[in-house]
Design a protein around this nucleic acid. Structure first.
Lengths: 207, 207
DNA sequence: CAACGAATTAACAATACTGTTAGACAAATA
DNA sequence: TATTTGTCTAACAGTATTGTTAATTCGTTG
């Protein structure tokens, strides 16, 4: 809300909080660590943000808005069906590539601080919900026209979301389990975009 | 290793630890909570298991062995290619259905206690690694025979793993974000098995 | 029954974390 | 210059956590 010009200290705390909360989640990122990373005493954190939950709430708010914003540019009706789908998949993928820690962050919140999400639920259904419905009816229409194979639209969207999210959330984990070096993982990540697009295309067109 | 007949108390602690570690991960499941759930004082936990890390290690060990065991029955060479693939997907899916919290548990360990996994890495490549290689060469052979479309075998296996794991790890989270009731989610979960099989089949055969 | 060992408890120690507060300091303001 | 205001620090309080230990109970066995 009041993200205008904060003082240097406040900004430093906020930046440190963002990094640490994304990396470690709510409980494992302590106010003391955040303060140390920001180069101030932990009293400053409480001075500016009152409580840990407050500052976490601000970080959460920022990223939820980013997520929701990232869903918007996908909906333009004029483009041909498959172009829209492909662009949707790619946009979703690219957003995740820019924020690879975000899925785990949200996952943690759902798991351990679900009450913090209550206030966003209306917001969700009015934004992301709309995007899902848009795509579902678009897919259904294309089925009705006989242009693609019969699929459950919501299942197809889940396929896409799962493949994209797991690419950034699970693939690196599997990589660590298998002792894969970072460059290899990076290359794998990149190759996933086309793989997902191809997979979904096969499902719809069988080629 | 010595999972023979433990005393009642030891078993109760172990059972409570399993539940809580799976539900909350290493850091958020406290020894005090585990003890309370087991109906004993927390001193008993230290009496039987010495440290929190020890008891966590035992839980981890148990589940890693279950995971590895679950990969084994998939490899029988005689069956036709697609039967083997389909059975592999279904087996993987069914195992996850039986242990829906396991992916998040392992995810947590990789994130927050990676040192505990070091000792398993050899074991991994000698078991799961073998299964992956087996399937990769099986897929490659089928491509060479011209029976299926050209795919990167490892990508296909990642598709399967991602789709199955996300079904149990991410779908319920999405459900909570969207306020979906439990029965609906349960039905969605079940429908995912066929969806994944169909999706992979399309990719390989285009029908 | 006596005695030994295992199981259990309650109390304690040490540490870490969140949050508060009194006071110091500095810069703008009157 | 004197005052006020916002910033910052150091110290503290309160709680929760992991782990220890001395004392106690309980069961088994000689």
């Amino acid at each position: 809300m009041d993200t205008q010009k904060q003082g240097k200290t406040e900004q430093a705390i906020m930046a440190a909080a963002e990094e640490l909360f994304l990396e470690k989640g709510y409980h494992l990122a302590t106010t003391t660590m955040i303060a140390r990373k920001a180069g101030v005493t932990h009293a400053m954190l409480h001075y500016y943000f009152r409580t840990k939950e407050q500052i976490f709430g601000q970080v959460l708010d920022k990223y939820i808005n980013e997520i929701i914003a990232s869903f918007q540019p996908v909906m333009q009706k004029e483009a041909p069906f498959w172009d829209t789908m492909e662009k949707g998949i790619a946009t979703h993928f690219d957003f995740l590539a820019k924020h690879p820690l975000l899925p785990a962050f949200i996952f943690d919140v759902v798991r351990f601080n679900p009450e913090l999400l209550e206030s966003y639920k209306d917001y969700f259904s009015k934004t992301i919900g709309k995007v899902i419905e848009f795509h579902c009816s678009m897919i259904q229409a294309e089925i009705d026209k006989g242009n693609i194979r019969k699929v459950e639209p919501i299942q197809l969207l889940m396929d896409i979301a799962m493949l994209n999210v797991s690419t950034f959330m699970l693939l690196p984990v599997a990589g660590k389990l298998a002792n894969t070096d970072k460059e290899t993982i990076q290359k794998m990540l990149q190759s996933r975009k086309n793989e997902t697009i191809t997979l979904i295309k096969s499902r719809l067109y069988g080629n």
